[in-house]
């Protein structure tokens, strides 16, 4: 089944604290009053300007294997290669915040509101992740309605451009999911427009399927192992 997901702007507004972390402000460092005001302003703009939209399409493991193979440029071995065959449910997904947010960021830079522009950018990046969460919840609901969501089932998202899944995999993903329906297009460089968009696969299954050791070729050069935190969360429920 293929399903568009209605996401409201309110669903994607991040916590102010999370935006601070996104700007590399360490935990425990209190933002001064002026900065807090900018943060609130950025979140107001985000609420007014984002038009979040999402889409997911269930896909069988063998068909996903084909999409995942893409143009044959993935690393020789990847975590997802071992994860997807064990999944009890798979869905390709795409989300976007729409064009307006990026336009607003450009505009704010142009009028030299650097701090506000940068805060809005960080908040919008997190909003794209939250839009992904909304689609994930919807997929979980579909699985549950079909009796496929057990107590130990955990959902995690995997994206082209991460963990050995080559960016060119976007092409096969787009051919199959057709996210142009929600206004996302793919460039030759496999970048999506609008910029604040995300794509990938949601894999559902027992928590343990998401667990992997960092021994893959992609792990060697990885400077941002966000997988560790994701795995920890999946395993701890």
């Amino acid at each position: 089944m293929r399903q568009a997901v209605n996401i409201s702007a309110a669903d994607v507004i991040p916590e102010p604290e999370a935006v601070l972390r996104g700007l590399s402000v360490p935990e425990g460092v209190a933002a001064d009053l002026r900065f807090q005001r900018l943060l609130r302003a950025a979140l107001d703009i985000l609420t007014a300007r984002s038009c979040p939209a999402g889409l997911f399409g269930e896909i069988a493991a063998d068909e996903f294997g084909y999409v995942y193979g893409g143009s044959g440029s993935n690393d020789p071995d990847t975590p997802l290669h071992h994860i997807y065959p064990k999944a009890t449910g798979l869905a390709l997904f795409a989300v976007t915040l729409g064009r307006e947010v990026s336009r607003e960021i450009d505009y704010l830079f142009h009028v030299r509101e650097f701090a506000l522009a940068t805060i809005l950018d960080a908040a919008a990046s997190q909003a794209a992740e939250l839009a992904g969460d909304a689609v994930e919840r919807e997929f979980a609901a579909v699985l549950a309605a079909n009796g496929l969501f057990q107590g130990e089932t955990r959902l995690l998202r995997y994206s082209p451009g991460y963990c050995g899944w080559h960016m060119s995999g976007q092409r096969a993903l787009f051919d199959r999911l057709r996210p142009d329906e929600i206004g996302i297009t793919l460039r030759e460089s496999f970048l999506m427009e609008p910029l604040k968009s995300m794509s990938g696969v949601i894999a559902a299954g027992p928590a343990a399927i998401h667990d992997f050791e960092d021994v893959f070729p992609c792990c060697a050069g990885c400077e941002n192992p966000t997988c560790r935190e994701r795995i920890r969360r999946a395993l701890s429920g």
Partner: peptide
């Protein structure tokens, strides 16, 4: 030196 953070730098730049 991580004594101030990006938002401070951007306000200073402005």
């Amino acid at each position: 030196a991580h004594e101030v953070f990006l938002p401070d730098v951007l306000l200073a730049a402005k």
